[in-house]
């Protein structure tokens, strides 16, 4: 256990970030009728869950978690997700993209990525369940469009974000007012960077999916990315598969998320690797951000995290 008491009354950057995030969780739990935490089983959402655990301890986390099941999630991620949910005794709602397609809530035209289909599925579940606040693991350092996102990000009754009409956010005074049908996206990790997340996982010895660590995997090179061969990624005749030592920096759906060659087997080794990384985690491994410089902004306006 780390000591958080210092003779000179200074807090380390991780302790300051932790205190800020815990404050946000408690504000939302106090002021919103029906919050939910978006839990993908990825590292950022796991850190969120850990912070929520701390915010309400020894009481249980007073809201459920919601996972959008793309049908293309990595097994290792689902396993870790279940471990966390069971350990904390949480209610988990699974919003299935497959089901949403069957019900005609979203349309799979064969060209749209699962990540984009998540938007409709997610918004539909928020509306059906009547959630008024949804915690997301987005960080401002991820992408330029996110740099201006508020901690409390207001969504209209179509679930859309209007970047030009955001509420001013001052001090740590968050404004949670919404009208019926609207909801608020809450980003408790706004001020964390990728390195902070890893430092925290390392310090707190947090369980994360095994695919974040180096392992051998059959991959295929496609559009400059290394994709894991699976039912979602079937090599074309012109493509050659290779077995490489890789790890994932983000864990989205299997058809879109690439891995990187790496030998980092521990959190400490990952931290060393990130400290000298030359490409952002999204730039390296997320096909869905690569189409245009404004790709993220477009998806955010539609209601993507």
């Amino acid at each position: 256990m780390t000591s958080n008491t210092h003779a000179d009354y200074r807090l380390s950057q991780l302790d300051q970030l932790e205190a800020e995030s815990i404050h946000i969780f408690r504000e939302v739990a106090a002021e919103f009728e029906k919050p939910v935490l978006m839990f993908s089983g990825g590292k950022d959402s796991i850190v969120m869950l850990r912070l929520a655990e701390k915010a309400f301890y020894p009481a249980k986390i007073p809201f459920p978690v919601l996972q959008v099941d793309t049908g293309l999630d990595f097994d290792e991620v689902l396993e870790t997700r279940d471990n966390w949910v069971n350990r904390l005794g949480l209610r988990m709602i699974v919003a299935s993209v497959e089901e949403a397609i069957e019900k005609g809530i979203v349309v799979d035209d064969g060209k749209t990525s699962r990540n984009r289909l998540q938007i409709g599925t997610l918004l539909n579940t928020i509306e059906e369940e009547g959630f008024t606040a949804a915690f997301g693991g987005g960080r401002r350092d991820e992408e330029k469009a996110r740099a201006k996102e508020r901690v409390y990000s207001h969504r209209d009754d179509f679930g859309q974000w209007d970047p030009k009409n955001q509420r001013p956010e001052l001090w740590s005074l968050y404004n949670g007012r919404i009208h019926g049908g609207e909801h608020m996206r809450i980003f408790p990790l706004s001020n964390w960077t990728e390195l902070d997340i890893w430092d925290y996982i390392h310090r707190e010895e947090i369980e994360i999916p095994s695919i974040y660590f180096a392992h051998e995997r059959e991959v295929v090179r496609r559009d400059g990315m290394l994709l894991s061969v699976s039912d979602a990624v079937v090599p074309k005749e012109s493509e050659q598969t290779e077995t490489l030592t890789v790890r994932f920096r983000t864990v989205g759906d299997k058809s879109q998320t690439g891995c990187v060659e790496s030998t980092a087997k521990t959190t400490a080794e990952i931290i060393d690797e990130i400290a000298i990384a030359k490409v952002t985690e999204r730039g390296a491994t997320r096909g869905d951000d690569r189409f245009s410089e404004a790709a993220m902004e477009d998806r955010k306006k539609e209601g993507y995290f």
Binding site: R140, D141, K144, A145, R146, A147, K148, P163, K164, Q166, S190, N191, T193, E293, A294, E297
Partner: peptide, 20 residues
């Protein structure tokens, strides 16, 4: 540092952007 598309097009910063 100019994040939103309209700002990139106009070449001005119109909102608070956070950098790390």
């Amino acid at each position: 540092t100019d994040g939103l598309r309209s700002e990139r097009e106009q070449g001005i910063t119109i909102d608070v952007a956070y950098r790390y």
